[in-house]
Design a protein around this nucleic acid. Sequence first.
DNA 1: GACCGTAAGTGGTCTGAGGACTTAACATCA
DNA 2: TGATGTTAAGTCCTCAGACCACTTACGGTC
Lengths: 232, 232
Amino acid sequence: MAATDRALTGLRQMIASGELGPGAKFPPEPELCDHLGVSRSSLREATRSLAALGVIESRHGSGTYVSALDPAEIISRFSLSVELIPLEGVLQLLEVRRILEAHATAAAAARQDPALAERLADILDRLEKTTDATEIQVLDAEFHGAICEAGGNPTVTALTGVIRGRGGHYRIFEPGADFEAIKRTSDLGHRAILAAITHRDPAAAATAASAHIAQTELWLRALRPVPQVDLP
Amino acid sequence: MAATDRALTGLRQMIASGELGPGAKFPPEPELCDHLGVSRSSLREATRSLAALGVIESRHGSGTYVSALDPAEIISRFSLSVELIPLEGVLQLLEVRRILEAHATAAAAARQDPALAERLADILDRLEKTTDATEIQVLDAEFHGAICEAGGNPTVTALTGVIRGRGGHYRIFEPGADFEAIKRTSDLGHRAILAAITHRDPAAAATAASAHIAQTELWLRALRPVPQVDLP
DNA sequence: GACCGTAAGTGGTCTGAGGACTTAACATCA
DNA sequence: TGATGTTAAGTCCTCAGACCACTTACGGTC
């Protein structure tokens, strides 16, 4: 087996075997090199791989640690790769988001939390007032994010968040030909979701969320020209 | 910004900007180092990160290439990290699988493909005959995998596959106290799913799949002792 | 035309060195 | 005594250079 793979397997094994749990500290690099039988370069490439996957964290001057191994955090790391997926693949992902978010929205409606409805209404008030593309995107994420959070499964929240972030790169809400019609349809979709949550109607909430995201899928399908993405 | 981060951002930008599409070849490492203003070590750590995420592929002696950027392949890379998630997180992930697979199973039932039903029946025949833990796991994966595939969304298939693989590490089917009862319940669940697909009843299929996976969640919840994982 | 060896191109690995950051122990001062 | 500044040890980060292993394509040979 290649050196880096050997290091990679060794590091993963140390975690999988229970030798190192979440938050635990790895031995210093030279010691690990000796233990795994690889050079520092290979070891560092292996640690970088696991760091990219959210499994470990290297802290400059302090040490290398096992991450919390929280599924939501690990899924968040996906955004680094999901942001590069072309439109064709994004549509597949949007179906995943539609299914999961319909479920989460239903769960949120079933939860019967007056504070949630109030907060969502406040977000929509602000959302309906603005025409700025960036602000629309932020408030939309806040709306759906709050609902998913209320759904109770942080993993679902993280996963839908990553997909929503990717979709946001395709700027549907740029002022253009159909801007006003699209914006109005979107606003109405949000109100339908909020109404279902306010009325504590899980089935209606799932349907409204599903329809709202399906609408986004249709817009994206029409938006064939591949956009530029600005990375940080 | 740190050297490796600079390289990472630069590489991602080359893809995000459209300069390099799926399958495209990167310039040789020395040229990239010069272009990005980092040493070869730092560049290599950056490429390893992106390779771990499934965004690029390095082929020894040939070059470094942009991957297909297929969401299903990218999600498959997740298994490297998902396999290390502790039981608590696996339960959150299983809920994701339950939601997605219920949907995919319904879609498969709606598809009305006689060949699928035949293939599934064959798998179940073999599954019901064996008591070998590994073989059970393989056939179970084959059964659910075939259904998800028929569901029509490869991303859903990949995601459920990764989660199922993680759950499989907790060996529910080891011969033990409740082995026979568990096995019989599991077999019945599979037959219920197959019946719904054969009868082309999407709603029943979704319910059966959901119930089957929910049962698995219950077994896992009861299985508190953390198992050892054997990595390849 | 098919096969094979060779050479150029490219990523993989190792070694050694110095720099940058974190942490904790220690000394100093009010 | 308590707070503060200093120092030193520990650790990861980056660079440079060299050599190895693999792939590919070219050109020669049969």
